[in-house]
């Protein structure tokens, strides 16, 4: 079953193309990370999902309902954490949650929800006195009302400290285990890496790639980074390493050599260095982070 289906979805603002023929399918039950630098078109895409913006071309549906023609029906099934919102000045945290409960005709307990997002003790304070992080938790709470089938979250961790971000991820995992589909955008890569089944990378309004993190890694030259401590100058032997097949890059950095290569080429690198008379004091490997992939994918488009 399909949670989100976009077909040739485009948005133009005068001469600027914000979204260029996006085809995207998000399946029910998955956690999908929508990744891209600021200004790539992530928010435009989400705003079209929420019917805050009309597409210039193409269409998108959520759980079988067209987002533009059946907006109210769509928004009844989803929970939303938008970006660029502000809380209602005169209402308390509890009243915000109650407003969402009435609007969705749900029967949640406001205090339980506030407790879940970690601001129970501030329930009866005016939301205008909340910090940015507390407001973000509050609006996440509003999104959780009615146990929606799909959560749409635009930059959910913005304004949260590392602890808050970790709690946010825990909540997203719980929601996913309950059966909810999660679609969220972020420009912070670790967040996406930590919770997503699949990611879509958006660059200048175009969907550059959609894949699982594992596949993205393997498509990136094996995705292994080898860090070798030598204790001495390496001189000419870097070129030897670069000459090996399956080695992408080799850089010397403070008596340490950083080599990106496929998994299989690791030993060849060590052996080659040894043969060249370089002392290998120590070495370790790192998995290529999503950040490396992200740079790889998006740098070419610039």
């Amino acid at each position: 079953m399909v949670a989100i289906k976009a077909t040739r979805l485009s948005k133009r603002y005068n001469t600027v193309v914000a979204l260029d023929r996006i085809d995207l399918t998000v399946n029910k039950g998955e956690t999908f990370g929508f990744l891209g630098p600021n200004g790539a078109g992530k928010s435009t895409f989400i705003n079209i999902l929420l019917d805050l913006v009309k597409p210039s071309d193409g269409e998108v549906s959520i759980l079988g309902n067209n987002c533009q023609d059946e907006g109210v029906k769509v928004r009844n099934k989803i929970g939303v954490l938008p970006e660029g919102y502000s809380v209602f000045d005169r209402l308390t945290g509890r009243q915000h949650i109650e407003y969402a409960i009435r609007s969705k005709d749900a029967d949640d307990n406001p205090i339980e929800i506030l407790d879940r997002v970690g601001i129970r003790e501030a329930a009866d304070r005016k939301a205008s006195e909340y910090s940015k992080g507390m407001a973000q938790r509050l609006v996440l709470g509003m999104a959780l009302v009615g146990s929606p089938e799909l959560l749409v979250l635009d930059e959910p961790t913005s304004g949260l400290d590392p602890n808050g971000a970790a709690e946010m991820r825990d909540i997203l995992r719980e929601e996913n285990e309950r059966g909810a589909t999660i679609f969220f955008s972020s420009h912070i890569l670790e967040q996406v890496e930590a919770v997503c089944d699949r990611v879509g990378i958006l660059q200048n309004g175009e969907l550059v790639t959609v894949d699982t993190i594992t596949n993205l890694r393997s498509s990136l030259g094996g995705g292994t980074k080898l860090l070798i401590e030598t204790g001495t100058e390496v001189n000419g032997s870097l070129d030897t390493v670069r000459g090996l097949s399956d080695v992408e890059t080799a850089i010397e950095n403070d008596e340490t050599i950083e080599v990106t290569c496929t998994d299989d080429a690791k030993m060849d690198v060590i052996v080659a260095l040894h043969d060249a008379g370089v002392d290998v004091v120590n070495f370790r490997t790192e998995e290529a982070s999503l950040e490396d992939m992200f740079v790889e994918y998006t740098a070419g488009g610039q």
Binding site: D51, N76, F88
Partner: peptide, 14 residues
């Protein structure tokens, strides 16, 4: 202007 309208617009209100 403040953005609180968004909180109403993302709920199921026309």
């Amino acid at each position: 202007e403040s953005g609180s309208l968004k909180l109403s617009l993302v709920l199921p209100h026309s």
